[in-house]
């Protein structure tokens, strides 16, 4: 179980894996996530499901190396197996539950940041396959770090790239591009969806509000079990405490207290740094 069928590096630090998990593949919907525990001593790492194939019994995950646990996942090779994969977790995206006629009247703009591009893919794919107009902005620091270019182009109507350094597409932030698309190019949308770093979702929400555009965000909070038992993922949404793992991960961006969410995300930074240093020490010893 949980054998890695394929592995490819999309950038030097972002890795895509197709993993054998037939039960999850059969049950998964856009917007949901899963937990990977790479080995016996590993953390339970929440990762958004980037694609699923019930026929093949596989799910696709995209992992960016940001710490010891994600490095550990990325170090696995095709043919090896993870110790545990659990899911699908969280609520499916709201649109998957909408009746066809109300869906028909909607026009979506997805704003994808960095590794957050991967979870946008199944959502765009789901909507596009049902004839719902979908535009996608993919943002990254530089052209080299843009992922899912071809895949996304196949599942949306208009695809826009955006880089901080101008090495590809729009030169600037995704927020500026979103504003340009609506204000200058006259494109109109009924719903925005932003998935990416917390700070990017915060500012995209501010821009969406300025444009009077409803926006959904997918919160990548800390989690331990991912099933509603620990409350590590709690976020304030509309003044109420919600558990991102079972009530989310997607929420109305206008309602989210992003500043609190960002602080809570960094709660274990000190411990993680120590773990990282120790990890590097050990690697040093091996050599």
């Amino acid at each position: 179980m949980y054998r890695i069928l394929t592995k490819e590096m999309l950038t030097p630090t972002i890795c895509r894996m197709k993993v054998e998990a037939p039960l999850i593949a059969a049950a998964a919907r856009p917007g949901q996530f899963l937990m990977v525990r790479a080995d016996e001593k590993g953390e339970r790492v929440p990762l958004t499901i980037s694609d699923y194939d019930a026929g093949e019994g596989s799910v696709t995950i995209v992992t960016q190396e940001i710490g010891v646990s994600t490095e550990e996942i990325v170090a696995f090779e095709a043919g090896q197996s993870f110790c545990d994969v659990t899911g699908p977790l969280g609520m499916p995206s709201e649109f998957t539950e909408m009746p066809a006629d109300s869906l028909a009247a909607r026009r979506y703009i997805f704003i994808a940041g960095g590794v957050g591009t991967a979870p946008v893919y199944p959502q765009a794919k789901w909507l596009h396959s049902r004839g719902v107009p979908v535009d996608v902005i993919i943002g990254a620091k530089t052209a080299d770090l843009l992922i899912y270019r071809q895949e996304m182009a196949a599942v949306c109507d208009n695809l826009f790239f955006c880089t901080d350094d101008g090495s590809e597409g729009f030169h600037g932030m995704v927020t500026a591009l979103l504003e340009k698309l609506v204000r200058e190019d006259g494109r109109s949308y009924t719903q925005a969806v932003a998935i990416g770093p917390m700070v990017m979702m915060k500012f995209t929400t501010l821009t969406a509000r300025k444009l009077a555009l409803p926006i959904t965000v997918s919160l990548n909070t800390l989690m331990v079990d991912g099933t509603g038992m620990c409350g590590a993922c709690r976020v304030t949404v509309g003044g109420r405490t919600r558990f991102a793992c079972v009530e989310g991960p997607e929420f109305d961006g206008y309602e989210v207290d992003f500043d609190e969410a960002m602080r809570r995300q960094g709660q274990f930074r000190k411990e993680e740094k120590e773990e990282m240093e120790e990890h590097e020490c050990k690697i040093g010893r091996d050599k």
Binding site: V224, D225, C230, R263, R264
Partner: peptide, 19 residues
Amino acid sequence: ENLCGVFSANEFLTRNNLM
């Protein structure tokens, strides 16, 4: 209650016991 450093006993114990 959502300040950093405030945990449910479930989170604290799950980290320590299960993990």
